[in-house]
Structure formats: C-alpha cells, structure tokens
Amino acid sequence: MRKIAMTLTALSLTLGTGLAAAPSASAATPCPSGAVCIRETDGSILNKNIFYSYGAHNLDNVTGYRVVVNNQTGGAGFQECKGYNGTNCSAVYRWVGEYSAIDYTPINSLVLVR
C-alpha cells in the first residue's frame, strides 16, 4: 500500500511541476547486495547512507525527497522512523527493490529487521 501511495505522490509531483522527484535508472548508483540504501537527489549513494546491520541507524542530514533501495536478502525489511534510535516507526517494508521518493525531512532513523 505504501509503495502505491508513494508512486502516486511522486507521479503527482512529476506531473504537477514538470520535474522528476527520483533520478533516472541510468544515472542511479547501484545499492550493494545485502544492504538498504538511501539515494541522494542526484542518484548517487553516499557511504554513510548504506546500511547492512540489523537494528536502528540514525540519519545525518538526510532531507528532502529521497529514494530508498532495499537490497537485503532472505526477506529482511526496514522501517522508517520519525524518532532517533528507531522510535515512532512505520510498518516493516520487505519488498526488494527501489521505493518511490518520499520526503525524508521528518525521518530521523531507519531500522533494519530480519
């Protein structure tokens, strides 16, 4: 359900402003196998935004519309949290692949779960 809502949001942003919220697939840096990554607005992935270990990860200066890539294996997922240290979190997202861009300004941590 979240993926559909985010796709519709990104689509409305794209159609409404004429600007794409997410980078093109050809410009995007791949997310390593076994990781969850947050893309920069230009499609690159900074080392500080590649997460491998289970548990909470506080975000540093991640704001604006960002694309998250879940490239974990074995059905592992992640949660987006408004609080630091994995508090006030969303449901667990287990779909593998690239999620539609959402505003990460209110998101302060990610939690990787088995």
Rank of each mutant, 00 (worst) to 15 (best):
S90L: 03
K3T: 14
G16T: 06
S12F: 15
L19F: 13
A25R: 06
Q79I: 02
W95I: 09
V67Q: 15
A35W: 02
N88F: 05
K82Q: 12
C81Y: 10
Q72Y: 08
G86H: 01
N70P: 05
T73W: 02
A28F: 09
G86N: 02
G75R: 05
S53A: 14
S44N: 13
C37R: 10
R2D: 03
E98I: 04
R94Y: 12
R39V: 07
A76D: 04
L59G: 11
A27W: 11
V111N: 00
C89P: 03
M1H: 08
G64V: 08
T17G: 08
A10H: 05
T87V: 14
I50M: 09
K48P: 03
L13C: 08
I45M: 03
L59R: 11
R39H: 15
S90N: 05
G18W: 03
V67I: 14
I4R: 08
F78T: 00
V92M: 02
N108E: 00
T17H: 05
F51T: 08
G55F: 05
V62T: 12
L110F: 03
S12K: 15
Y52F: 15
E40K: 07
K3R: 14
A91I: 12
V92H: 02
I107F: 02
T9P: 01
Y93L: 09
D60T: 11
V62N: 04
Y93P: 00
L8E: 14
F51W: 12
D42Q: 06
G34K: 08
V96H: 09
T29D: 15
V67T: 15
V92G: 01
G16A: 10
M1L: 08
V62P: 05
P30T: 15
K82W: 04
G83E: 05
R2L: 09
V96R: 11
